[in-house]
Amino acid sequence: TFELKGKVGKVVKIAEDHYLVESEGDKWIAYSDEKLSLGDRVMVVDVDGLKLKVKRIP
């Protein structure tokens, strides 16, 4: 299986209740415990079905 946990991506869209993150050339629906901005670099900390939980990284 394709393992996304630990992968790095970038926030490419902000929606009302989720983010769109591009990682490894694909776009994924993501959510975070912190507020993210367009262009933020993020790391995948968990995968919930087809949704990614991400956190901001420097």
Rank of each mutant, 00 (worst) to 15 (best):
V45S: 05
R56G: 13
F2D: 15
P58A: 09
V8H: 05
L52W: 02
V12N: 05
E22G: 04
E16T: 12
G25C: 05
V12S: 08
K51F: 13
E3D: 04
G25V: 04
L20F: 09
V44I: 14
T1K: 15
G9C: 15
E16P: 09
K5C: 15
V54H: 01
A30M: 08
V54G: 01
T1P: 15
T1Q: 15
V8W: 04
D26I: 11
E24F: 03
V45C: 05
K51E: 13
V11W: 00
D26M: 14
P58S: 10
L38H: 09
D40P: 00
V47R: 03
P58H: 11
I14P: 02
V44F: 15
S23C: 15
G39E: 12
W28S: 02
D26W: 14
K35C: 12
S37V: 12
D26G: 07
R41I: 12
P58W: 06
M43L: 14
E24G: 04
D17Q: 09
V8D: 12
E34H: 07
V12I: 07
G25A: 05
G25D: 06
L4I: 14
D46P: 01
K55P: 00
L4P: 15
E3A: 01
G9S: 02
T1I: 15
K10N: 08
L38C: 09
L38Y: 07
V45M: 11
K10Q: 10
K13F: 10
M43G: 03
K35R: 10
T1W: 15
K13N: 09
D40K: 01
I57D: 14
G49P: 06
S37Y: 12
I29D: 11
V8S: 05
L4N: 06
V44W: 04
L4T: 14
D17K: 10
E34T: 05
G49L: 05
L50C: 12
K10C: 13
R41T: 12
V45L: 10
F2N: 15
I57S: 08
R41C: 13
Y31M: 14
P58K: 04
S23H: 12
G49V: 05
K53Q: 14
L36S: 00
K55V: 14
G39R: 07
H18F: 08
R56W: 14
W28A: 03
L20P: 00
K55Y: 06
M43C: 15
S32R: 03
A30Q: 01
M43A: 06
K13Y: 09
K51G: 13
K51V: 13
S32M: 04
V11L: 05
L36C: 09
L20C: 10
P58F: 09
V44T: 03
K13H: 06
G39P: 01
D40V: 07
M43D: 05
D46M: 03
K35H: 10
G39A: 10
E16A: 11
T1L: 14
V42S: 01
G9D: 00
W28K: 02
I57F: 14
G9L: 08
K53F: 12
V45P: 01
Y31Q: 13
D33G: 07
W28L: 08
S23K: 01
K7S: 10
K5I: 15
D26P: 04
E24I: 04
V12W: 06
V47I: 08
K35Q: 12
D33E: 09
V54Y: 01
K13Q: 07
K27C: 10
A15E: 09
L50R: 08
V12G: 04
V47G: 03
K27G: 06
I57N: 10
V54D: 00
